[in-house]
Structures are given as C-alpha cells and as structure tokens.
Amino acid sequence: MATLTEAPPPLTPTAAETKPPRRRGRLTPYLLLLPGLLWLFVFFALPMIYQASTSVQTGSLEEGYKVTWHFATYWNALSEYWPQFLRSLAYAASATVLCLLLGYPLAYLIAFRAGRWKNLVMILVIAPFFTSFLIRTLAWKTILADGGPVVGALNSLHVLDVTSWLGWTSGDRVLATPLAVVCGLTYNFLPFMILPLYTSLERIDGRLHEAAGDLYAKPWTTFRKVTFPLSMPGVVSGTLLTFIPASGDYVNAELLGSTDTRMIGNVIQTQFLRILDYPTAAALSFILMAGILIMVTVYIRRSGTEDLV
C-alpha cells in the first residue's frame, strides 16, 4: 500500500551523530547559555533570595530589619489572609475556564477554517497587546458602565437578577463586583490561552481527520477522540499561562472590583507599599508561589500529557 511506504526512515544512529565533538565545540553550548543564566541569576535567583530573607526578618523601618528566622510570619499571614488566597484561586480558575471555553473554538477556527484570513485573525488576537494592560482594563470600566448599553441590556434581560442572586454581581450593576473582575481577568489573559492552543491545533495533521471520517467517526467523535487529545499540550500550557498570572494579578481587582473582591495581589501590594510590612508581604508572595507550584504539579501529573507546547 502506498500509505505504508511513507513510514518514517529507520531510527538508527548515523555516523555524524556518534562521532565525539571537539573540545571547543563542547564548551560552546555553555557559553551560549551564559547570558541567559546570568540574567536568571540576577533577576530571578537574587530577588528570590532577598525575598526569602525578608520573609523571616523582623523589625521596623526606623530600627531596621534583622533576620530572626521568624517563621510565624508565614502562619500569621496565612491565617489572616486565607480568604483572599481562596478568592484569588477561585477567580483565576473561573477566568481560566472561561478563557478555555472562549479560546478553544477561536483557536480551532484559526487553525482549520480561517484559510487565507489566518494571519489577519492572529493579528487581531494579538492586537490588544499594542496598548497597555492598564488602558485595556480601564476600557472595561467604560464598557461595563452602570448606565451603558451592556449593563442596560443585561438588566432588561433579567440576567443581572440571576447573577446577583448567585452573588456574582450586586444590584443592577456589574462594575465593582466579582463578575467584573473575572471578566477583566478573562479578557486580559485570553491571548495567552489562544496562542498555545493554536500552536498545538495547527500541528495536527488534517489527514487524521479524514482518516477518522473514513473509519465512520462522526465529527463530534473525531473531535473527542482525535483532535482534543492531540491538542492537550496546548490546553495544558494555555491553562498554565492563564492561571498562574491571573492568580497573582491585582490590577483587575483594583480597577474593576470593590472591597469584597480584593485578591492576594492587592494584599501584597498594600502590605509592601502602604503598611510597609515587608516580611508579611514577602511571606505572602512565597505562600502564593508555593501554592501555585503544588497545584500546577498536581495538575500536570493528572493531565497525562507529555508535551507542554
């Protein structure tokens, strides 16, 4: 059969690959790595060490801070601010799910159906990045304004009665409620979901779909059994790229939220800049990091995908 002849060439090592490289050649990759490693050391490792140290210090601005291995700061921070932690994770999770629901069809469309419009649609996805994060978020204040058309329409359709009963909005407004914050998060992180989804969908060989059809799979079955499993790497990296920054975000909660929607990012900002309680701020950052690391680890293990891009 013709199809069989297209099988991959045998995987035997070739002579060129087994020959030991010269000495200078062996150092080259490390030298090339050097700028990256330095960058990581200065902008990642050093600040982390500094923060770790800060989190176990005690003192005040006047007297200075000393490392006293005061680990109780962690416990105090957690017992004081666990509601904000849970809220951040809940908002980030909601935004991630919404991003996936909105982003998957769009990525699918771009990958398989957009044809010659592919590049244009991709540019449209990325276009919002040309304006600043802050401006994009502020725009939502205009979109969701109390007297604006969106809220007016939602009100006349009685949607807000339902969301308000669920506790997502309050009264006949959307701004300064949890819904507004989640909408803001979803909007701001949507491209981070679409791009990896698109990359992994685009790699799927179209002939697999034809093959599934030849084997009498309905379109839905094809999607369920072929397309979706093959796009799992994109789903996993997309959700990570959305969830991780969203759970630490504070701009959306600050601008679109109210007192009862403050996220852990807002608490850290307040502790660090306003109350000047640097140890608590540092401890909160580490708790957030540890929490996300654990959740992401469990998630990746469970998702059962091997590739991440």
Binding site: V56, E62, Y65
Partner: peptide
C-alpha cells in the same frame, strides 16, 4: 545564605 549579607532598611 539568606542569614547573612542582606542589609536592613534603616536610619
């Protein structure tokens, strides 16, 4: 490492 060498903010 963090036990040493990080100056405290102070007067």
């Amino acid at each position: 490492l963090s036990a040493c060498g990080i100056p405290a903010a102070g007067k």
